[in-house]
Design a protein around this nucleic acid. Structure first.
Lengths: 329, 329
DNA sequence: CTGTTAGCGCGTTCAA
DNA sequence: TTGAACGCGCTAACAG
């Protein structure tokens, strides 16, 4: 294993000089910089990220906090996109990533969690889909001990950046399109879980749409569960004109309920997961670039860790109708 | 951040003593062990895994090498199960995990890859679905510089353990059940990619079955692609009695081809992914416990890193018919 | 059985 | 502009 020591010897400089070149510090002559880089190439030197993390608290590692539902594996695609985006970008920025599932840290207090991350030299945290009722992670973010990026939660402070699409507008857009296509009036809206920030925002979009188009709306909590959505549709869909769902999975549940009841109503979803293309019925949905969002999240946490300021970032979205022919490859 | 030093001071012992209790070394009196554990509890001490990894090469970290297809997101479920199993078990065994996608290491030579892992204090590697034609990873395994566990590849040596279900038997089982249900004679077998070990093994199972049941079989390479399987089915299914596919995704492609042709043939798949339950047609498939396999993989790599011997581990499998009602929750 | 000591590879003062 | 020296938190010989 080739260490910084050997690079220094090979280049005929001191270890600290190599370190400075590596980390882009100023006050190094072009000449020595070239010598060092030459030596790095020749020896095929790769800096030991462990040692670097141990030595410097400043540019530590990034923890990814994901909350995959162990039951509903149909949406694993979203988490994989998050992971792919994060790991790709982390490699680009030379950040080390720690993949963490919420189950791992479920019964820790803020203090324990803080210690846990500190012990791993974690300086930045990306939280995907923070629940409003997760006090520990919420406190972690508010504590501002770590540089945080929250995806799909509207928390911003000195050291916290928020990233998401405009859920209010997206829900408005996709529902409007679906409703205008069939000239509907009576809407059944199957919302998400109460403790999610996006649930509120999407509901707000629906309320605005109801006003703008002069509709009537019944709202029920589907908790992002396919089965719950199915049951809600079975119960209430009959005397509605359209079913708007806050997730693709719920849209699939609702659609299957309609098929069982042998009635037709337009349904729209939210997310754009591949599964939508497999269920036999084309549905409108919002497509988010989960990969791109995650890339951006890593870039933002990188900024924060280098002294950047927390901010709100809004990513673009689009409306698509999912077809099997677009899915199969 | 509370360090081992403070624990030692608090317990009134030396640092190394704390380290020894931490790592379960022998030759520590019950009394001091109790004192130390008491101090650990009181101070809420969490060992710094970074420092441990840096200091000791022996019990370093474990790299997970996954190869998720960026296109075919329908099978992300499998990778998430692998990840969940690995992370859960790693936490149990106090192992640190580095999640790696093949894209990250795609254009490295063995030497570079070795350096890359060494620089990260990686001592163990778990490779999920090693391709026969990945020379770099293959050499890495054969080089025996790392403790390796290969999932679904039959490589065993001093420091390499192989884990998988019995693909030959599984393919035999699921095809036999499907064939006997409908008393078929002419089989279309859509195999996987040529460079996969499992492809061979499953094909061997089919050959045995053809002998045992006195069938005729046409074999085509579907490359684990839904579209390829669809095209194969469109071309050859007509004068066959049954279509056996080496993956669920290919079975779905084949089934959709049959629907388009408006003919019926029994189809069976392999994997047991959730998607199978959504496509409207019930199909036999092999269910593997990807989560459990991954748990076992981590346990095995843990053994290897502590001096264990490489071996072959076979996991159980079962045949299921996928129903939508079993999927929706 | 316990404590002392020397690194692991690197970042970072502080002199030179 | 460069380099020597210290320490990050821990493990592992070795000495006691």
């Amino acid at each position: 294993m080739v260490s910084i020591r050997e690079v220094a010897k090979h280049a005929g400089v001191a270890i600290s000089t190599v370190s400075k070149v590596l980390n882009g510090y100023p006050n190094i002559s072009e000449e020595t910089k070239a010598k060092v880089q030459q030596a790095i190439k020749e020896l095929n030197y790769i800096p030991n990220s462990i040692a670097a993390a141990l030595s410097s608290k400043q540019f530590g590692r990034v923890a990814l906090i994901l909350d995959p539902k162990r039951q509903t594996q149909a949406i694993d695609q979203i988490f994989m996109q998050y992971l792919l985006g994060a790991l790709d970008t982390a490699q680009e920025l030379h950040l080390e990533v720690v993949t963490t599932f919420t189950s791992t840290i479920a019964d820790m207090s803020v203090e324990e969690l803080t210690g846990y991350f500190m012990a791993q030299s974690v300086a930045g945290v990306i939280i995907y889909g923070l629940s409003k009722e997760d006090p520990t992670l919420y406190k972690l973010v508010q504590g501002q001990q770590f540089s945080c990026v929250v995806v799909d939660a509207p928390i911003v402070n000195e050291r916290t950046t928020s990233i998401s699409i405009d859920h209010e507008q997206a829900q408005y857009d996709v529902a409007k399109k679906t409703i205008l296509d069939d000239n509907c009036k009576r809407v059944l809206y199957i919302a998400g879980r109460k403790d999610g920030y996006v649930t509120e925002q999407r509901l707000a979009g629906m309320k605005r749409l109801v006003q703008d188009l002069d509709l009537t709306m019944m709202v029920r909590q589907g908790d992002f569960s396919e089965l719950a959505a199915r049951n809600i549709a079975l119960k209430y869909a009959k005397n509605k004109d359209v079913i708007v769902c806050a997730s693709d999975l719920m849209a699939i549940g609702a659609m299957n309920a309609l098929i069982d009841m042998d009635i037709f109503r337009p349904v729209c979803g939210f997310d754009g997961i591949t599964l939508m293309g497999y269920v036999g019925k084309q549905m409108n949905t919002i497509r988010q670039d989960f990969y791109g969002i995650s890339c951006r999240a890593v870039k933002e946490v990188h900024q924060l860790m280098r002294g950047g300021q927390g901010q709100k970032v809004t990513m673009p979205h689009s409306i698509v109708k999912m077809h099997y022919k677009d899915i199969i490859i």
